[in-house]
Computed example of a mutant assay.
Amino acid sequence: MSVPLLQAHELTVRHPNPGGTVLAADRICLSLDPGDALVLLGESGSGKTTVARAVLGLPGRSARVTGRILFDGTDLLGLDERALSRIRGRRIGYVPQDPTASLDPLRRIGPQLTELLRRHGSADGRRAARAAVPGLLESVGVPDPDRVARSFPHELSGGLRQRAAIALAISCGPELLVADEPTTALDALVQAQVLELLARLRRERGIALLLVTHDLGVARRTGGRIAVMQDGRIVETGPAERLLSAPGHPFTAALVAAQPGARR
């Protein structure tokens, strides 16, 4: 039996505001094994992104976070920002909903990848880092990687920008990939291609995937296990196929009824 790569125990996130404290995540418990997928599924405001950002060590400046987040046995909540930054980007990769959140619009794709490889010590010097860029882009399905490496983000299609963002996220060989609504802004064909890319990275590299989505179709295609969130709490968990075909919680049943295509 494998040891979980990621575990959350009683994870609670509160945000102060003028009217009182907002409980964004309430006593979340979850577990993710190496190479597996866990989908955080829920409507907007359910707390799924809050959980993902807490795992990344980015809960928000005023957030109060309690509980435990264990990554390979290390409690991330006990680390300072310097220690977290050594893990984030190298051992935990992040794919945002909007790739412009991780891509610098004023720099070409190649230099951005080169800098990240050098910052985390994943390449021996600038020349080696630069030489690794085309292969890295090719590994995420980018056609003509040399051209893309020379391009600014605005010169690329949405699908290519998202692939470039995924290349950034996996450039240092992470064990865990956190993907927050990574296909929302893409058309159906490109969405399917990105989901297949994430599945291939799991198969070929053994990367665990924590994926946030409101879309049951995305959850079904991702597979693995699903944790359904409502009002900051996980109300149901289970294997994707079972949960979507025979939901046990009324809220999950309502979600499935609202998106009947997710059953297939």
Results as ranks from 00 to 15, higher is better:
P59Q: 15
R225N: 14
G159M: 02
V55S: 07
D33I: 03
Q193S: 13
L70M: 15
L160Y: 00
E236F: 14
R203A: 13
Y94I: 00
P96I: 13
V148A: 08
A52K: 02
I207C: 07
L56H: 01
L209T: 09
R163Q: 06
A185Q: 00
I166K: 00
P18H: 04
G89Q: 01
V95A: 05
R82S: 11
R147M: 11
R263I: 06
A246H: 15
L41G: 07
Q259R: 08
L79M: 10
R147C: 08
R147Y: 10
A54E: 12
R150M: 09
R126K: 11
R205K: 11
R205V: 04
L201D: 03
N17S: 15
A149R: 05
R130D: 14
G224E: 10
E241Q: 11
G238D: 10
E10Y: 07
P34M: 10
G73A: 12
M229Q: 03
G158D: 05
P34H: 10
R205M: 05
A37L: 02
A253R: 15
G20P: 07
T100C: 07
G238N: 12
G159V: 03
A8G: 07
A185K: 00
L210P: 04
T213Q: 01
N17F: 14
A246M: 15
V228W: 10
L211N: 03
L216I: 07
P174S: 02
G238C: 14
L41K: 05
P18W: 06
M229V: 08
E81A: 15
A24Q: 10
R150E: 11
D80C: 09
L5S: 04
A169E: 04
A199C: 05
R220S: 05
